[in-house]
Design a protein around this nucleic acid. Structure first.
Lengths: 228, 228
DNA sequence: CGCGGAATTGAAAATACTCAAAATTAGTGG
DNA sequence: CCACTAATTTTGAGTATTTTCAATTCCGCG
């Protein structure tokens, strides 16, 4: 936990101070929400284990999943600006977070500049992550979007010490489609196509990347794979 | 300037301290870039006047405009995470910014908690803004995207004391299309369609919203307008 | 064993794109 | 200030990608 999240380059003393303000752990069962759009903002949340999705919901019924979060990632930064959560956060499986009371964290920033700087990096990283998604949604065809999605998951699991080539999709096809701006049918067809080209194999939600190089090329937009 | 940007609820003393760290003003001519992707990060920039676009550029040539910025808005927050700029910022017209050396700003945060909190709100606001764009790109049809774009511009000009119903598009049709994930031809057709339905009138880059209510309904997704 | 949600597959339809040409506008230099 | 050229925008026709709608299939679970 500590390795991935807020404390980097802090001395023991500072880590202690941080630990002291960190609130209780909270377990969220699959399909339960950690917070909903409009909820008053009190805490940031660090994912301890499990997976979440965050989604933006429009009054007229449109929904857009804006991200999938896994262990070590921070949830709730969108809520600072209006003191209310701006999206829904829902657990994709039984998960656990730890609460970080934001007012107390901000107090601590005054005493630990390193911590403050690291926090700014995390917010900034969220901004750049979203910019990458905007590029994906605005400029890429379905095939490339899906490849980017897979390569990104692969890299994130690798960074956590898991296999880069074999992992479980924690989200439904519908969630994937929504995130990528595609229909569930399109996602299904893409999976079949990639399977047929031996880029990957799928068993239910278990994916194995058989040709990571080719997938990366698809993601980078330097290659295309046959229409069918 | 002061009203829109960082200092809100600061006393005179604090405002002075902030003024002291604020660097020189910098003029950027039309089509010149304020910074480019990969440039080392030193300053944030507050737009004093003029307009900018920020764009995300992919090695394989894809480009996505991630936002248009106007007076009072802050540029460069995406660069904090990697100490390098993550996007290009280009002036849409002759513009002026003031430099805010980030290390000095972060120092100041230790002394002015109000300023720090306000800064966090601004970063958070950027995150929510991008989430809104993700919803637009992922879930809306061309017509709705374009309506959202117009209504958003209108609101931002209104917030600055300009007319909500009549304003100049500072960006080309191509920029609009790129931002909205559409081709230039689609944007042009949408303009023609909206014109034909008396939702707006256009003269070159000067737009007048003739039926803001209807446009807001289109933007909200509660109405549609005839295909042609 | 059978029910129900999720996923896959197929065929038809729609939206937005591509390509091409014409029209308009902006920029430049006389 | 005008004329000329280049760039941008508009418009049209045909195409492509993705969606929609519908029908199956697959699995988990009671």
């Amino acid at each position: 936990m500590h390795q991935l999240c807020l404390p980097m380059g802090l001395d023991d003393d500072d880590v202690n101070r941080l630990d002291q303000i960190i609130g209780r752990r909270r377990r969220i069962a699959r399909d339960e929400s950690l917070y909903r759009m409009g909820d008053p903002f009190q805490n940031l949340y660090a994912v301890r284990f499990g997976h979440f999705k965050t989604s933006q919901n429009n009054p007229s019924g449109e929904q857009q999943i804006t991200g999938f979060q896994m262990a070590g990632e921070l949830l709730g930064m969108d809520a600072i600006s209006a003191d209310r959560h701006h999206c829904d956060a829902v657990a994709l499986e039984d998960s656990e977070v730890c609460e970080i009371p934001f007012p107390r964290l901000e107090e601590l920033f005054g005493h630990i500049p390193t911590l403050l700087h690291h926090f700014h990096r995390m917010m900034s990283q969220e901004i750049t992550r979203e910019q990458n998604v905007m590029l994906l949604l605005g400029n890429m065809r379905a095939e490339q979007r899906f490849a980017v999605f897979l390569v990104n998951l692969s890299a994130r699991y690798a960074a956590r010490g898991y296999s880069a080539s074999s992992f479980q999709l924690r989200m439904s096809r519908e969630d994937i489609g929504n995130y990528l701006g595609l229909t569930i049918e399109s996602v299904s067809r893409l999976l079949s196509r990639f399977k047929k080209q031996n880029l990957l194999s799928v068993d239910k939600r278990e994916v194995t990347l058989l040709d990571p190089a080719q997938l990366k090329a698809l993601a980078a937009g330097t290659k295309h794979c046959a229409p069918m």
